[in-house]
Design a protein around this nucleic acid. Sequence first.
DNA 1: GTAAGCCCGGAAACCGATTTCCAAAAAGGA
DNA 2: TCCTTTTTGGAAATCGGTTTCCGGGCTTAC
Lengths: 360, 360
Amino acid sequence: MTARINNRVTLRDVAGALGMDKSTVSNALSGKGNVSAKTRARITAVARELGYEPNPLAQRLATGHRNETICLFSGVLDTGITTDKVLLIQQALAEWELEAPIYACGKLSREPGRTQMAQIRQLRRQQPRAILCASQLVDISVYTELEAYQRDGGLVISYDTPSPLDCDQVIFDREDNTYQAARHLLLQGHRRIAIGLSRLIWQPTYSEGDTQQQRLRGFFRALEEFGILPLPEWQFRHGSYERGGEEMARQFLSLAPAERPTGICIINDHVALAFMAEVIRAGVRIPQDLSVIGHDNQPIAAYCPVPLTSMTQPTERIANTVVELLMDRIRGGGADTVPQRITISSELVQRLSVSPPIPG
Amino acid sequence: MTARINNRVTLRDVAGALGMDKSTVSNALSGKGNVSAKTRARITAVARELGYEPNPLAQRLATGHRNETICLFSGVLDTGITTDKVLLIQQALAEWELEAPIYACGKLSREPGRTQMAQIRQLRRQQPRAILCASQLVDISVYTELEAYQRDGGLVISYDTPSPLDCDQVIFDREDNTYQAARHLLLQGHRRIAIGLSRLIWQPTYSEGDTQQQRLRGFFRALEEFGILPLPEWQFRHGSYERGGEEMARQFLSLAPAERPTGICIINDHVALAFMAEVIRAGVRIPQDLSVIGHDNQPIAAYCPVPLTSMTQPTERIANTVVELLMDRIRGGGADTVPQRITISSELVQRLSVSPPIPG
DNA sequence: GTAAGCCCGGAAACCGATTTCCAAAAAGGA
DNA sequence: TCCTTTTTGGAAATCGGTTTCCGGGCTTAC
């Protein structure tokens, strides 16, 4: 009736069956100690027969070594690309025969902050060897826990957006990303350019990691190079990805046609799809009246009303780099090596949603 | 230089600092034994000061109780709805202050079977209290491990598709789901009806759990009720969700216009979006020439070229039911209660992609 | 004042492994 | 054959907790 673990075959059971001592069995099975080949054969045979499996709890307690498990901590999993990155990292880990459970909460979670704290605490209690952390949507308070985890000897590798932690980081360069997008529109001849920015329901406060600020900086930098002053009414703010496209479309359509931008950078392809569907419904022609650039180059980009030009996010490269850094740390044991920051930028995939502006 | 856990404050450290015995400290902190209020206060004070945190490994080893953690095992995480269900379950668990790591592999994983086996083994070694298993894309060989886990006293709750396991199950009724979709088209007057079936790259072999068979049964049942003989050329087969829409469109367009179906049920909204985009490009009008029903009622359904009529999958209800069953087992301890199977069906959400057939 | 009872803290066994050290047995050399 | 060296298995400590059980000191009652 209790939750006691039933019927587990222990080392002592095996030893008892053989009339030997635990230590002999342990030595034989781990291949370490001084055991003759003959006895070892006998022992392994009996152990297999009895279905002996060492209790990992006891093992870890005895060895004092931390778990060799790796964990993925991804704050919030939202549509598409975030999940992709997590899964690609997992796949890259599989090459090393490593399996990593995912700690995350849903995009609609009411209290992501609280959930994340609970998760990170549980994570620390598990004492994994390393935590791979998608910093993008991680609550600021989580970093305190991660720091404590580091002090305990845990390994943290951060990816996606810069993290305040003193750890290896793989950073996806959102500033450059948006800079390139805006620049592409500018090079096509557009001078009236808008950007869609996510007004997050739940806002992380570590400033360097603020993705919307990063995007805005890149946007401004591009405009500046062309000597253009950004207009605040061309910064569209939207909430969740689910409704973001609609919201932006409303804001766009509320402008008088003559005052509308002729090009727009949108946070991702899902939002872009919804945005396009709405403005097309209102009679706007793409790309004749409005050029649209999406982000992340998701599968649906090809199936938008007009095939969508989009900035890629090189997810595989990000994932592989994360795992490389991890393995370097684990094997090299380079505990004294200075943490690195590796920046990864993106490329433009051209489809049909961008053209030079067509007057009239 | 070893991966030894550094500087952890142990029970003995606390006891030493107080000049007391481990057991006294343990009793005081756990509130169990015979310790005076005064000494308990002293002990807790010192423990806090030293930053003592019990080692969960040692605790679990000593108590012999299994971990109270819950784990989610979702085989493969593919686009959209599968991930949603996982995250919603997690959210439902959060109401009980439970956090559950997710074990899954990506939709493009080359060897999902092998990955899943590795994961389930790791899972068993962690000895969690319960595993919530999305049976849909779980390799058949995993069930053997899950059975062994059950024999060890572990709790399994399965959801999505029927599982061969003797455990509580929350089943999403795909037969009824497709039956309803087909019936809707038939009631609109369509008599030439097609279905898109996924030819999975990686095929589970537990027959009752074969989702495509379930869907086909529902489809046939609907046709039968209207006395219609299903034509094999109206069963479109496609591979991955990523390219499924294109593949189906090719198959559809390769039929002579007069021989094309006038209505079609598609496996999910992403595939439907791609399919629609392609056939519209080829001049097919929706819904005038072809009525389309999608599945899962995903956000993009509203932004398809023609807003998509779709069958919902009541993900929240599924998630909540799973967690209810779990909590019943955990609390009620009803170890002798017979496992239940709860079936959940779906509803039609009408948009604009279905109309009565328009001759000519 | 003494016996009975209760409360509190400590000693020790235990969970299931690892690991060090030691003694007995086997092998090898003279 | 006897002594040395190596091999091999076992005893015991340890990891960091929990839990049972026991005895000393204090209270209470007669």
